[in-house]
Amino acid sequence: MASKEEFRKYETGEPIVTVRNLSKSFGSLRVLKDLNCDIKAGETTVFLGPSGTGKSVFIKHIVGLLKPDEGELEVMGRNVPTLGERELYELRKHLGLAFQLGALFDSLNVYDNVSFPLSHHTRMRQKEIKSRVAEVLELVGLPGTENKLTTELSTGQQKRVGLARALALNPTIVLFDEPTTGLDPILCTTIDELILKLKTELGKTFIVISHDIEGTWNMADQVGVLYQGTLLRYGRNADVRRDDNIFLKQFFGRTEDGPMIGV
């Protein structure tokens, strides 16, 4: 069985997620159409695109929350759509999900939020959990905030607590859904720099969904642009930025004049 096989360490640049001909429909609505891409270990891959084009749906496939209609999806050597529940949970311990704002537990304090995956997925002792929480909070730049309620924190801090929770289990791949949407330029830069720092210091693989184009140029190694379920362009940061495609130009130029729909 595939699940008995150990999770091996991936070298930087090795494909860690491979997607082949992935398609998904909800009823008559085709959300993902024939997606192909390789996501490389140790790099930051950013997916851009207008909302409603299937970015979140795509990322849900990677963590096995949705099953594709067609196509294959391999994450860390496992064929995700065929995994059973137990194996899926095994795999998810290596995947950290940082949800869009709102997925923190309001009624709990920062410590309980961050330690949640630790106390549920590991047999760590209370003391170890405590030091691990302190460690990840230090990483995201919020040392000593354990006892604050999440509602007392500012938006930027909440995002960082979400990231800390995602990092708690020391995952290989970190997925981040719209970390900077709706934040001011200074906070955006802070969060982008945080991602950059974690990537270089810890060698983690980041898969990020973003609306922040400038931030993407700063932090991404690989960029994918989705529009209406197809991957318009998938390539290195600099290549995508200089691409001639009219869709990309409109998106990067933030204007209504162009083939993309605004409403």
């Binding site: 207008p50 909302s51 933030r254 204007t255 209504e256 605004g262």
Partner: peptide, 9 residues
């Protein structure tokens, strides 16, 4: 919180 195209709109 909107994407760049909707923002422009």
């Amino acid at each position: 919180g909107l994407d760049p195209i909707k923002c422009a709109a």
